[in-house]
Design a protein around this nucleic acid. Structure first.
Lengths: 214, 214
DNA sequence: ATCTTATTGTTAATAAAATAACAATGTTTT
DNA sequence: AAAACATTGTTATTTTATTAACAATAAGAT
């Protein structure tokens, strides 16, 4: 209930992870799961799981644990959009291709319908399972294929311009993997991920642990 | 002051981002920066910047803004380890190669010294700037090259075993890019990133925005 | 059929992160 | 050299996220 209220970002992330795990379990013919089991699989607490499910208004009814199939369904109703959303990868270097292949095991209503690059070797070929379009045709293609989400994997010096472009063409959400931090209008959702930052964070805590534990 | 206390993870992440930006600015011959300028570049608040710098005990002394060179240096003293740490990429598929190339513009004392794969085509070649070793030699190589950080980019079904292995071989920090959530002993630092989760998060907020804004 | 137990759903408490408020301090202007 | 100003460093407040506590309840045991 109160499903009209936006969920906290952290909860959305965990719901996505719950679903990933639950789908795996379904494939293994498991049908019910307790909050503490699901929690253990993600190394979080059972309370957190129950609280997240409370937020999406899901209730097991009984103390037989959660019906996995039903729960997957409920999570989908909350985090997926009914009609599905179309996604494009902008920049088909190593990272773009990597992202494309991650999409194969995808679990939501997201459709990877296009990729863009400026390399003639790539244009009009199917790469990692997705057709690559000439980046010059981006405006037309984004509108034709009704693409609302872009994954940005272009080289850093192209990031700002490309971002401004796709926003003009009507993109509503961007996952930015470049090392450039972008600015978008308030009605466009932007999520940024810098892998070097993640590595430096790991290094920091390794260093600190080494200091205290030898 | 109090530099022996571990910093919050969020602060560490921002420090890494400050440094990335500051290094770019240095390259453009900018020498001083105000907190609000740095904040604007990352779309955060100036208070946050000042608070983070307070936590690492850095003080500009004057109202001329921060001396960029000095600040970069200070951040390095806090988040880098003095001798540098050696890093390996485990799994040289698309994602592994992408990560390797991100390392080129690296800004810290981290050294990418090895990668591992089981594909004979790759073994003993230099790929994306880093030598690829036979994954069978991992134990020896990790010890020989004193590798303490691993970036895990193997296929999902290999994730758990590979993780247990590298932990046995003495790895102290792992950045896990597989879709499998791992378990490590408490003295090993684990950071997990699931890009499908990020995409699903973007999709959720796009959907919500579309609901309220049409 | 009642008792015991395990698990849930939810409220309350705590912890962590972000933001606001503001005194201190140097800089520039007059 | 005093006044006005801009910016910092830090404490206080607010907000957000996590964890703890516990009543409610269904399932199985006796």
């Amino acid at each position: 209930m109160m499903q009209n209220m936006k969920l906290p970002g952290k909860t959305v992330e965990r719901l996505s992870e719950y679903r990933r795990i639950l789908l795996n379990l379904l494939a293994e013919k498991k049908n019910y799961i307790y909050s503490y089991e699901l929690a253990a699989l993600l190394h979080i607490t059972a309370v957190q799981v129950r609280r997240d499910l409370m937020l999406i208004g899901y209730s097991s009814g009984a103390r037989k644990g959660y019906d996995i199939r039903e729960l997957v369904e409920t999570i989908g109703r909350i985090i997926d959009s009914e009609e599905g959303l179309n996604v494009a990868i902008v920049g088909m270097g190593n990272l773009g291709r990597a992202v494309a292949s991650y999409f194969r095991g995808k679990r939501s209503k997201l459709n990877l319908v296009a990729s863009f690059d400026n390399d003639p070797q790539k244009i009009n070929k199917v790469i990692s399972g997705v057709k690559c379009f000439d980046i010059k045709t981006m405006e037309q293609t984004i509108r034709d294929l009704n693409i609302s989400i872009a994954i940005l994997t272009v080289p850093p010096d192209a990031a700002k311009n490309t971002c401004d472009e796709i926003v003009r063409y009507g993109i509503r959400g961007i996952l930015n993997f470049t090392t450039v931090s972008l600015k978008v209008p308030p009605d466009v959702y932007l999520e940024e991920y810098d892998m070097i930052t993640s590595i430096e964070k790991v290094a920091y805590f390794v260093k600190e642990n080494l200091k205290t534990q030898g």
